[in-house]
């Protein structure tokens, strides 16, 4: 990774610390600055309230020309998070064709926060969960809360 990219990541870390989205905490390791660990509380009032989620943000070698990669380390019942051991997310800013180099990680964190408040079933990675979210919100809420209890306490 180039020194420019490192410089940029450092700067972004500073920005994130100054303006951390609500309920998030970033664990930054200067020895390994391309992998951030983010601890996030489920937003109040959402189906994930009360849950504590661990996320990993990985910066690719080509950063910032390629988007960072987000993965949920804690299992979460969400239409936009893959229901596998990767827990990956791929929408909006995080898509390579949408990402622009001036975009910042803090925007990514906000995007994640907003998606927990309001999932986007139209751009889902788990169609069955998206469908349930659209057709049977009650059942979705129940499942999401269930998973919070099981995995995110």
């Amino acid at each position: 990774m180039s020194t420019g990219a490192k410089k940029r990541i450092m700067k972004e870390y500073g920005e994130c610390m100054a303006d951390t989205p609500p309920g998030m905490k970033i664990n930054f390791d200067e020895q390994n600055m391309t992998e951030w660990e983010v601890l996030m509380d489920g937003p109040d009032g959402s189906s994930y309230a009360g849950g504590h989620f661990k996320l990993k943000i990985t910066f690719p070698n080509e950063y910032p020309f390629k988007p960072p990669v987000v993965s949920f380390k804690t299992k979460i019942y969400h239409p936009n998070v893959s229901n596998d051991d990767k827990g990956s997310m791929c929408l909006g800013l995080l898509r390579p064709d949408e990402w622009k180099p001036p975009n910042k990680v803090v925007a990514v964190l906000r995007l994640i926060h907003n998606l927990l408040v309001e999932p986007n079933p139209d751009d889902s990675i788990e169609p069955s969960i998206a469908n349930e979210y659209k057709e049977n919100r009650k059942e979705f809420d129940k499942n999401a809360k269930d998973w919070v209890k099981r995995y995110a306490k």
Binding site: K66, D97, K100, P102, N103
Partner: peptide, 18 residues
């Protein structure tokens, strides 16, 4: 990056946000 890695040509947009 756009041309070599992503194979884009005709529709490369300005790097500016949005």
């Amino acid at each position: 990056t756009k041309i070599k890695d992503e194979g884009e040509a005709a529709r490369i947009r300005c790097p500016g946000d949005g």
